[in-house]
Design a protein around this nucleic acid. Sequence first.
RNA 1: GCCAACAUAGCUCAGCUGGUAGAGCAACGCUUUCGUAAAGCGUGGGUCAUCGGUUCAAAUCCGAUUGUUGGCUCCA
Length: 647
Amino acid sequence: MAMTPLDELRHSCSHVLATALLRIFPDAKLDIGPPTDTGFYYDVDLEHKLTTDDLAKLEAEMKKIAEENQPFLRKEVSRDEAVEIIKSRGQERYKLGRLADIPEGEKISFYQNGEFMDLCAGTHVRYTSKLKAFKLLSIAGAYHRGDEKNKQLQRIYGTAFASKDELAAYLTQLEQAKLRDHRKLGKDLKLFVVDDEVGQGLILWTPNGAIIRQELQTFISEELRKQGYSQVFTPHIGKLALYKTSGHFPYYKESQFTAFAEPDAMAQLATEGCSCAELTRRLEGVSAQFAAEINQRAGKEVIVKERILDADQLLEGFMLKPMNCPHHIKIFASQPHSYRDLPVRLAEFGTVYRWEQSGELNGMTRVRGFTQDDAHLFCTEDQVAQEVLGCLSLVKTVLTTLGMNDYRVRVGLRDPDSSKFTGDPAKWDVAEAACRTAASTLGVPFTEEPGEAAFYGPKIDFVIKDVIGREWQLGTVQVDYVLPVRFNLSYIGADNAPHRPVMIHRAPFGSMERFCGVLIEHFAGDFPAWLAPEQVRLVPISDKTIDYARALLAKLKAEGLRASLDEHSDKLGAKIRRAEIDKVPYTLVIGQKEAEANSVSVRSRARGDEGVMTADAYVAKLKAEVATRALPDKKKPAPAAPGAPAS
RNA sequence: GCCAACAUAGCUCAGCUGGUAGAGCAACGCUUUCGUAAAGCGUGGGUCAUCGGUUCAAAUCCGAUUGUUGGCUCCA
């Protein structure tokens, strides 16, 4: 695979970094140093714990090496010669393994610059002097070969560009990104908090954030009503039996909160001296009959013998729900359905809990409790393609309304080698074909990714890039042929015989938490009026007009607008500045002139001073902007041409 | 969970090699009544994340714990 010139430059930087590393730390054992989308890194095994001071030293040494103007020389060798070179340089710990990765018959090459020589397919720039704009950024831990069972190495991250200007621009961009980080803005704009005592990864939505979430939920609910969905509500916990049937427990045990038993049962077990291990075993156990059913259905031993217990050993318990689907399935199954009723579309903003690893938690985007804008559709096989398409168009509507156009669509297919995926392969093929077709009619480029499917069926994910370039999976649509079988769902067809429905799981936002996190960064806190926690700030020039301002505030509130009045005795400039910092979309300046004419002087955060209009005209204008969920329009309206008739 | 760094007022941060805390902004009060991004003066506010150790003395040194950040692993 040919490298781009930029990759070549960055890859060369990796080698120069390694050269510098060995000069300063001769005992360093090198692993691998590739270019990345944003720079390069090198993984190194080193007794010495690298510090930021070391980064500066390494960078200075790299500059020296660049100035030494060493040529990059390619050398092709036999496998035996390669082993000799690696051994002679004392780099056998990782490099011999890397050498073994090169398939037999492929060329083996080394690249040399100065005293340094590395096993490498290339390619490189010609001279180290070409490296003019690079910077080491951070040190991180990284497992050898990305496997947590292996030793953790020290990874040095850096970036490089063709010119110093581009490097500076990139570093500025990183700074800018920090300014719109949802964790910073969440604090500044008082949108949400996380409290140690409540727990890591558990979001407390403060009043301002709650307004945004409520508006988004209202928006979604309106769209769902248009599309024939029914709203339901279900509790936050469910019995283990439910998740044993669905297959969620205990296969995903490591990412679930621990199951808990009923208080009476716990007390009884405690008096019997039951150990925790025993309690767990009895909670996770299943009956022989149930195991046989599941194993037969799956066509393999899904339930291992150790989990099968006698009836008197089985202990029923509860768990925090990791998904809403089993609850919705039970609502569907609570009454008989005719084919005429289908599709049944059940929607809920359902809160679920997952035990994410502590190191994975991140602001609102990776949390332990979150609310999905979830829905489950139950339909006939003939309806699948159309319903999937309906779900996709809903996601697209949502993203378009919010001006989120930088996303990609990922069709997650099963990996034939993995036992994670259950169900009939023929049904999988049909479902995968339906997803592919639906994705292709969406008019958005999409990629197919084997192994990314849910265990019960293929899925279509919407992946959005945040400002730091990280990708977040938001909306998702998943086709499921498995759970209807597990829960023995049926509907009566036109032939008066029972048929198996197909389920579709979908969530246009994914989760309210993650979506809001990404949305905060998307708007950099400058929310459109319909989402802004505070839509209008009234700013009286002096307290002489405070009575008019108070009356106006009451009027705006009565009209359902979110307004506040700045009663500080600051000068106008300070009040304007405060409103700007609070990112309020509209500031109304109220002075003597306005009070006398029952008007307002409008200042838009997006467009600046917009002049004076009557209070009534402004209320009507803002209400229309909110009702249409308009995005902020940065452009000033074009002034009417002189002499042109007023429109 | 793993590697590393960090944790001082509501926020952003200062506090050198140990001698029991400071600024700006915010809040509150007074003065000012002002036309599109910062008026002036004053007041209150901190068990220096928590617990333990070293020391005559700890925000400062050491250890543990909790949390945060950057990565890694993971993400039904």
